[in-house]
């Protein structure tokens, strides 16, 4: 579904991604784990078109999207729930969701999808007329995921959905991610919470300072001594 080859990204003189390659197959949950500054967020931003690569290619469903605009990528079915949630805080919950469907014109279907999001996150329905900035951290994360779902993505990119959440809420968010995946959406998950991410992932890549240092199935990496030492606190 998604294929990245030898991707290089620079921020001025800083070489943030040094030739990474990765693949996401349809129906999978793939996770990218690694320390702060390893380049996980940059990878997701490059996939969704917010950052232009200096070298390398990105293919999505067989199409070369390396130089496609973010709008085109959303249209093709790539959606990003960005790091730190980035909800539109002075707009209402409903307006946030509507903006998630910004490129769609099928009003009736949009309505359906809004009620689908409400079904998945009942708390959002209760707060639909409230300014999004007044929601709690967990609710905001739910809104960010719901908003990303509103474009009907084939590939949902989640950037640190567990950041700053209480452990119980983290569990809830991960359950939801698995459920979204079961209903047919492929997921690329960036996480610092490596143990949780590896538990639900089909496959995983480990990033270190702009390169991919390890890859394998979730279960394999859970067993790996290096991973245990570096990320799982074992």
């Amino acid at each position: 579904m998604l294929e990245i080859n030898n991707l290089n990204v620079h921020f001025g003189v800083i070489h943030a991604l040094k030739g990474i390659s990765l693949k996401v197959e349809e129906g999978e949950i793939v996770t990218l784990i690694g320390a702060n500054g390893a380049g996980k967020t940059t990878t997701l931003r490059t996939i969704s078109g917010l950052k232009k690569p200096t070298d390398g290619t990105i293919f999505f469903n067989g199409n070369d999207i390396t130089s496609a605009s973010p709008q085109d990528r959303v249209r093709m079915g790539i959606s990003l729930a960005p790091e730190g949630r980035r909800i539109f805080s002075s707009l209402t919950v409903l307006e946030n969701l509507e903006l998630g469907a910004y490129l769609r014109r099928d009003k009736a279907e949009i309505k359906k999808d809004i009620s689908m999001v409400y079904e998945r996150f009942p708390i959002l329905k209760d707060r639909r007329k409230q300014a999004a900035g007044t929601l709690s951290g967990g609710e905001q994360q739910m809104l960010a995921i719901g908003r990303a779902l509103m474009s009907r993505p084939k590939l949902l990119c989640l950037d640190e959905p567990s950041m700053g959440l209480a452990p119980l809420l983290v569990q809830e968010i991960f359950d939801i991610i698995q459920d979204i995946n079961r209903k047919g959406t492929t997921i690329l998950l960036v996480e610092q919470n490596a143990s949780m991410a590896l538990q639900i992932a089909n496959r995983a890549y480990v990033m270190e300072t702009g390169t991919i240092s390890l890859s394998g199935t979730g279960a394999e990496l859970m067993q790996s001594e290096e991973i245990k030492k570096a990320y799982l606190g074992g």
Partner: peptide, 15 residues
């Protein structure tokens, strides 16, 4: 308005 609220998120929504 979404640009004012969060430009990166707006771009990620395809705006």
């Amino acid at each position: 308005i979404s640009i004012r609220e969060d430009e990166i998120a707006a771009e990620a929504m395809g705006i």
